[in-house]
Amino acid sequence: MPPLLIDILFAAAAIGVLVLSLAVVLVKNPVRATLLLIASFLPVALLYIMMQAPFVGILQILVYGGAIMMLFTFVIMMINPAPKGGEIPGEAAKPFGPVRMIPWLLLLIAAGFTIILPVYRAAKTLAPVAVSKPGFGSLASLADLLFKDPMNNPFTVSFELISFLILVGIIAALNFSRRRGATGKSDAVV
């Protein structure tokens, strides 16, 4: 691909991500915010594909956009926090007004000049390390990384440990959602 086209694609994807993420933070309707977040994953997936991570891009859309965000949509539709006009009551009142934001903005500007700008300049001078492996970032290559020689591979163990984390999450979620009186005792203490 010609470098100009790559730059144009990167700029378009970056602007798309930023605009959609700002919209996620600013819109009032929660269902719209969730759908906008799913939409903001599409340019991110494009960026991943540009960075030779096609499998990660697919994961971003299938797992992140398809599974995790659907969980959010389910919960929003289940508890239906929008009784009138699609707005959460009181959402319009800003708890974080412009006056209280000033010290944080100052802190951010100070951090920008002391830390972020030097890091940005340093990162700009770093030469990219070329990728030479065939099939870099593909499913087969990642499977090799994770499961090749499983007895001595640290990635295998830590990857399998994620399943324990998910198991703990399932148990916690089930415990939270037990109804009061279903077991005879009062539970779901928050």
Partner: peptide, 17 residues
């Protein structure tokens, strides 16, 4: 890429809990 997969695993559990 591996760290990304770990991160979305954690994100999924965080969202569920």
């Amino acid at each position: 890429h591996y760290l990304y997969m770990l991160s979305i695993g954690v994100a999924g559990v965080e969202a569920a809990v």
